[in-house]
Design a protein around this nucleic acid. Structure first.
Lengths: 220, 220, 220, 220
DNA sequence: TATGAATGAGGGTTCATTCAT
DNA sequence: TATGAATGAACCCTCATTCAT
């Protein structure tokens, strides 16, 4: 279901004489390439992964990859662009209750999504510099769009007097960095469940933007 | 002044005939290698940087690099190990007032240090996976030691009733991720000064661990 | 016709789409690699020959060699293993009359074969130490098998009273060393023909294992 | 006691102010270089041995080798030329009884010398092709001189009717190849002692050149 | 759509050697 | 006589990619 900028997408109407079986096989191979590349890029980094390795994972010779992606760079681009698109789409269609406090909703959504797609998230941070400028810009735009979701929430909450945030943009980055750091250390089956994590971070975020500090007992 | 695991350091007892001038020249070259590699690794990633590029930056032929570092991997190791050592040493010798609230002190220290050494910080996060296991473990140990500084602060503050932190370890990671994210977007000469950043983040952190939640006006 | 452990031999079941013409071209290239390497190894020694030189001889870029042999070592292994296999196979199918005295037959076979395949013979002696242990052992086993042919002949002849050999194993080595030394100095077109050589050495061998020494006219 | 073409030989009269201690130290180093190179060349072959390895064996930095030998090639040349000189000198001063049959004397001498100096013998055969032409020619001349010793013995013996050799030059090569092959397989402490070997080979040689063929029982 | 052969560039590293000290 | 730094060339091998089949 993830969106994908794969090569064969624009060929839906292409000559049908090749038979749908061939096309289906090709699409399946493309998907296997994506999956193999995702795993490898996440594990070793884009620059350290060779087309030969991906081909071996897929069970195909290196040359065959070029039937599905014009270059190695395009595989990375495909993965990163579709990750960003998927992220934004997932937010739109999230099944978290719309009645939930928007900040809570964002925090829960972000944590859940990022713990579910650790590889995609990881490479979308690590491999930015390996994207060609044009693709880099696209990803950055999407990322800013995603961050704007949170900034809007913070600004609206501030206007409504629910949160006290001095600089919503900075706070956005602070919160997102904090949340995005989770998959770097969280391991399933450890001391804390995903829901535990969610509550702990939610608490931190809530307090960080809480409108008032009760008494003079503050530090400093 | 940064610490360094450089090659020639342990040779104090070697035959002295080669002259101190020669050796001094070598040490300077090693330092230039370190600097060039740091810049390049930060900009393009370890895997994408060639020894030839580093050599060209240093103004030396590729083979000469091997008089100072046995392998490319050792350059990375040197940079990462000395970064971690420097970080911990800098904390010990920080000139931030010891009377300051410990959490504030940590936050200010962390932000300042990380904005001053962006390249070192960057590669110490990005290139972890390119470290050989043995060096990886060393860096991880040092990192845990650094994190423990904050965890201790939080635990002590909690005991003293100054902070309310449900899970000091998780809070440690949350705070560090938040703060470490700064250099990823902060640019000198922008809208906010380093001191502005410091105050904004300090405020977020203080509130996040503040001992009480003000009123029933909380979200949810 | 020489046997060969070449890379593509075991791939009969690979997908057939690449076409037999492509594969045939590859096999021919592999054969040219073998020939070039054989000449170069014999002339300069394994260690002194570069893959670049072999590639240049073949008329191909260095990287292309690796489509046919995974490493330089594998070329050597291929040459040495197939030489030993060929030698043993040639003995089995020799067209020298089976009615001939077995020792004479062995001597003639050995001389002829070794004067025909001087390069293979040469590297099979000179480059033994450049073989990886596992391949070294294989070659040694084959060599011992070849030597056993002569040892058996000597033992049978001794039992039959035709030869007097005190220690067939030592005599085997002595004879083989003697015969194998021929190509080191023999040059076609010189004073002696191959047949002359054959007769001279045959005479030496016959006498060396002759059952009796006639009279007291022996030296010492 | 082995002769040597080492660099420092021609400097006997050089300025004495450096002190004999320094010179002695240098000569000792040169000798250690020779020994290390001999072992390494014999084990791995000239081309596969690096100056760094030799230097490490000697306990010195690579550059220091050049105080004793102008090039790597000169080390090889030194080893091979002095081996040939030593071999011929050893023959001249052999303590084998001059009353012994000359062929027996040669065989015993050759076997003993070659089992005593296996490394020198080995490289003098294996590394011939790595000698520069001019040095190659010198070694070949010496070798021919050595072979001539045996040829002369055979010719004299033939004239005297003691041996029957159809072609003394070919017989020379046959005998020398046979004897020189011994160190390739002989191992001390095995089934046979050096003296056993000597007797066995002596017997083979004696018979091979024996003046008469006993009876009609010959093969073929 | 997949193969196997080939390219051209470049990777990390090693080498024999030089030379100021 | 020995050192440590440097050179310039070369090493084996891998790479992303192309292309005829």
């Amino acid at each position: 279901m993830p969106s994908s900028a794969a090569k064969t997408d624009d060929r839906a109407t292409a000559a049908a004489q090749a038979g749908s079986q061939t096309r289906a096989k090709g699409q399946e191979t493309a998907e296997r390439v994506r999956k193999a590349a995702l795993k490898r890029f996440a594990a070793s980094g884009y620059a350290a992964v060779s087309m030969r390795e991906i081909a071996a994972d897929v069970g195909v010779r290196p040359g065959a990859l070029y039937n599905h992606f014009p270059t190695k760079q395009d595989i990375l681009k495909d993965l990163m662009l579709s990750h960003m698109a998927d992220l934004l789409a997932a937010w739109e269609t999230s099944d978290l209750s719309p009645d939930m406090d928007p900040l809570e909703r964002f925090v829960r959504f972000h944590i859940r999504y990022h713990l579910e797609r650790t590889d995609e998230v990881f490479i979308s941070y690590m491999e930015l510099r390996n994207l060609e400028p044009v693709n880099f810009r696209i990803v950055e735009t999407e990322r800013r769009r995603y961050e704007a979701l949170l900034t809007d929430i913070l600004e609206n909450g501030r206007t409504a007097g629910r949160y006290a945030v001095e600089d919503p943009k900075v706070t956005t980055r602070a919160i997102i960095a904090m949340l995005t750091g989770i998959p770097a250390w969280y391991r399933e089956g450890g001391r804390l469940s995903e829901r535990d994590i969610e509550e702990l971070y939610l608490d931190l975020v809530r307090k960080a933007v809480a409108p008032e500090i009760p008494n003079g007992d503050r530090m400093a």
